[in-house]
Design a protein around this nucleic acid. Sequence first.
DNA 1: CCGCCTTTTGCAAGCGTGTGCAAAGCTTGC
DNA 2: GCAAGCTTTGCACACGCTTGCAAAAGGCGG
Lengths: 336, 336
Amino acid sequence: MPPKDFISALEVAQRAGVSRSAVSRTFTPGASVSAETRKKVTDAAEALGYHVNELARGLMRNQSGIVCLIVSDVATPYRSALLRELTGKLQNAGKVAMLINTDRSDGSVDRALSQAIRYRADASIILSGLPDASIVRLCLKNGQRLVLINRDDDEPGPLKINLDDFEAGERIVTAFARAGCKSLAFANSDAGTPSLMGRERGFVAAATRLGLEVSVERYGWTGYEAGRVLAQRFLTRPRRPDAVFCATDLLACGFMDAARHQFGISVPDQLCIAGFDDIEQASWLSYGLTTFAQPVAEIAAKAVGWLSIDENGNDIGSPSVRLTAELVWRTSIRAG
Amino acid sequence: MPPKDFISALEVAQRAGVSRSAVSRTFTPGASVSAETRKKVTDAAEALGYHVNELARGLMRNQSGIVCLIVSDVATPYRSALLRELTGKLQNAGKVAMLINTDRSDGSVDRALSQAIRYRADASIILSGLPDASIVRLCLKNGQRLVLINRDDDEPGPLKINLDDFEAGERIVTAFARAGCKSLAFANSDAGTPSLMGRERGFVAAATRLGLEVSVERYGWTGYEAGRVLAQRFLTRPRRPDAVFCATDLLACGFMDAARHQFGISVPDQLCIAGFDDIEQASWLSYGLTTFAQPVAEIAAKAVGWLSIDENGNDIGSPSVRLTAELVWRTSIRAG
DNA sequence: CCGCCTTTTGCAAGCGTGTGCAAAGCTTGC
DNA sequence: GCAAGCTTTGCACACGCTTGCAAAAGGCGG
């Protein structure tokens, strides 16, 4: 198969009987073409099956319309939901999403960003991990926008989108207290990301402020299996907690399943559980998990919106957006 | 922010004191450069923060290293798992994934493919929907590889990866029969894709062959909510089925939850349930769903492998791969 | 009909890279 | 020491597109 068969603007121009620039202008929004030539061109293009070569266009303009999404654990419910929102909104904004998977190894994010540079991406949106400061500066120097979602970093330049994790941790304590819970637990992963730690700190702070017993366990990554292990740890203690806040819905599902099916504990009668993320499974009948909803649509809107503003503009500073996670009440916490 | 700051090969060449071609060759695998010049070049590149412009490279070679993944409902467990495998394997193969979201509207896939052409993608992998024959031909004519996963199409050219859906439908009938079930049900969505219909046909065929009562319902898309609705339909009948095969794990989860929590039916004692996909939730304690596993890793391997073979080769025909979905036994079907 | 202004058109110069070709440098065998 | 062979290097062109610039065309009032 000879990859020479692509139709170029020149061929369209010849068939349409116009100059090559006319073809170019026809496909460039805002360029000056008469209705008549435009029609001739589009007809010829249609007939020949012409498609603008974005590579060449990007080469000229020095930006490609590509936005890189840098993410690990794509198959996770929360991540994939965010991905859905981001890709959708990017498409609406006329951008195209390049998906780069990272693992937890060092330099993984840096390699992803370097790929973003090679493809002259307009922007990169980082959902997991944290890049090295030097490559961040390189991106910014080349006019590449950067968005960090749920990861804190002091490096100025990127847009930082975060939630009120600390306050959420505080709020769920009052919910537990109102349900009459006395012995609180926080089930965390030991990933140690700022958002997870923020929830933990807020939770512990509010609990001690109210004089409630509180203890913390951290284990593994934020998945279902880790939730089961954490349940094992908490529920085999001599004195069991009667309320547990899981840093993540996946942890909460694992925790709840272990509590019910391995320990025969009834939720919420003997144990109240709350999670964070509001993944789809949280609303399934088997769980009915009371949880904080990640405002994924809003996050995506902020991220994509920020890519469009001030397109040819000056330094716009280092903005930072803070969204609030609303508590969604279901049935895993007793009524007050 | 002036987007003019990108370092070009020329600048690297000047700093390294070599010709620009030397720089080019240094970053082109298999080109002839002495170790000495290579070192000079890489040092200079490192110091300057040079990154090859893949746009320009793609323009020359007329292929970009980009592979488009065309998919709807990314946030669905099975889809996102497949996506994880595909992106991972693509990266290992030195390709880069471009994610294009489609909706169910007409022409959505065609628009995606046209974008693939504009970016001179090496290949497109289609996970949902079916493209128009004319644009398929256009892709193929331009040397763009095409992979169709779980969608049947007679158009020659693309690689088609399918499962033994029909046989799976048959096999689960024998499992139900061995469990002593007499009245069989198939819960399908009315999406009507070939894979879903294949499972249905196999199921019905085997059931009637064994002289077992069998009935089919179709509703909505293949999601959790549809499963609940289908349960409603089947379980309010005067004569309830004692075994149901759901076309999808999500349907099965919804079905099982409704059966247990709304109808107080015990699974598997009063009702055996099986699903298809083996999403992560199928293994969760609350479900323990017996189901057919989509061989996602194998699917991705076949798809990506096919992109690499015969890179500069001739017409390779219209190959087709058929994989088998293994039945994963859990606890939603009674022991034989 | 002419001068003036606005819109449209064509020309040509790039954008950053890969690569064929020929010259130059180096190695090897006799 | 020299011819023959191989490796390395530089030159220059091509890839398909955008866009500034100037020429051409069209509109309009006097």
